[in-house]
Amino acid sequence: TTQFTVHSPEQAEQWKEYAKQKGLEVHVQKKNGTWHVTIH
């Protein structure tokens, strides 16, 4: 599991796309103005 924080919805979307291409599961949670992205 990879977990990191991004600071814009655009970055979060890019990671979603990346994960989809790799066939991975991605979870994005918005918290205090940042987005926590978890890739399984």
Rank of each mutant, 00 (worst) to 15 (best):
E25I: 13
H36L: 15
K22D: 03
T34M: 14
H36I: 15
Q11H: 09
A19W: 06
V6T: 06
A19R: 01
Q11E: 15
E10W: 10
Q3T: 14
W15I: 09
W35K: 00
W35A: 01
F4Q: 02
T5E: 11
G23K: 05
E25R: 12
W15T: 01
E13I: 07
V28N: 00
G33E: 08
G33M: 05
Q3V: 13
H27V: 11
E17R: 08
E25A: 11
Q11A: 14
T2W: 15
H40F: 15
V6D: 01
T2D: 06
H7L: 10
T2R: 13
H40V: 13
T1I: 14
Q14L: 14
K22T: 10
T1C: 12
T1Q: 09
Q21A: 12
K16G: 04
T34W: 10
E17L: 10
V6Y: 03
E13R: 10
I39A: 00
H36T: 14
V37A: 01
T2V: 15
W15K: 01
L24D: 02
F4I: 11
G23Y: 03
T34F: 13
Q3E: 12
T5W: 11
Q21E: 12
K20R: 12
S8R: 04
T1M: 12
E17P: 00
E13N: 10
H40Y: 15
H36F: 14
K20F: 09
H7A: 13
A12M: 08
E17W: 08
V26Y: 11
T38C: 05
G33V: 02
T38I: 12
T38R: 04
Q29V: 15
T34E: 14
E10P: 02
T34C: 06
H36Y: 14
V37G: 01
G33K: 05
Q21H: 10
P9Y: 15
N32S: 05
T38K: 04
I39M: 06
F4S: 02
W15V: 05
Y18H: 04
Q3H: 14
H7N: 13
H40C: 06
N32Y: 06
N32L: 05
V26G: 02
S8E: 04
W15G: 01
F4C: 05
T38D: 02
Q3F: 10
T2C: 15
K16N: 04
K22F: 13
K31E: 11
H7M: 11
W35R: 00
T34K: 13
N32F: 06
E13M: 10
L24A: 04
H7T: 13
A12K: 02
T1D: 06
K30C: 12
K30Q: 13
K22S: 09
A12S: 03
S8P: 01
W35Q: 01
H36P: 00
Q11W: 05
E17M: 07
T5H: 08
T5G: 03
K16H: 05
A19P: 01
E17A: 10
W35E: 00
W35L: 04
T5N: 06
Q21P: 02
A19F: 13
H27L: 10
A12T: 03
V6G: 02
Y18R: 03
Q29A: 11
H40M: 13
F4N: 02
T38H: 05
H7E: 12
A12C: 07
Y18F: 09
W15R: 00
T34N: 08
E25P: 05
H27M: 09
V28Q: 00
E25D: 09
W35S: 01
P9E: 15
K30E: 15
N32I: 03
A12G: 03
Q21K: 13
V37E: 00
G33S: 05
K20V: 09
T2A: 11
I39N: 00
Q21W: 09
E13V: 06
S8M: 04
Q3K: 12
S8W: 06
T5I: 14
V6M: 03
A12R: 02
V28Y: 03
A19K: 01
H27T: 14
Q11S: 08
P9T: 09
T2S: 11
V26K: 00
Y18Q: 03
G33W: 03
T5F: 12
G33R: 04
N32R: 05
G33Q: 05
A19T: 02
E10Q: 10
W15A: 04
V28F: 07
G33D: 11
E13Y: 08
H40W: 15
K31G: 10
E25Q: 12
K16L: 13
N32Q: 07
A12E: 02
N32D: 13
K30H: 14
Q3D: 06
Q21Y: 09
I39H: 00
A12V: 15
H27K: 08
E17K: 08
H40K: 11
W35G: 00
Q11G: 05
H36A: 06
A12W: 06
E10H: 08
G23T: 02
Q11C: 11
Q3R: 12
G23I: 02
V28G: 00
H27C: 07
Y18C: 07
T1F: 13
H27G: 04
L24Y: 12
T1S: 09
H27F: 11
H40S: 13
Q11I: 13
L24M: 07
P9F: 15
A12F: 05
H40L: 13
H27N: 09
A12Q: 02
F4A: 02
K30T: 07
Q11K: 09
K31L: 14
A19L: 07
Q14R: 13
K30R: 08
T1E: 07
K16R: 12
S8Q: 04
A19Y: 12
T1P: 09
G23V: 02
V26W: 05
N32K: 06
L24I: 07
H40I: 14
K31N: 10
Q29H: 12
Q29G: 05
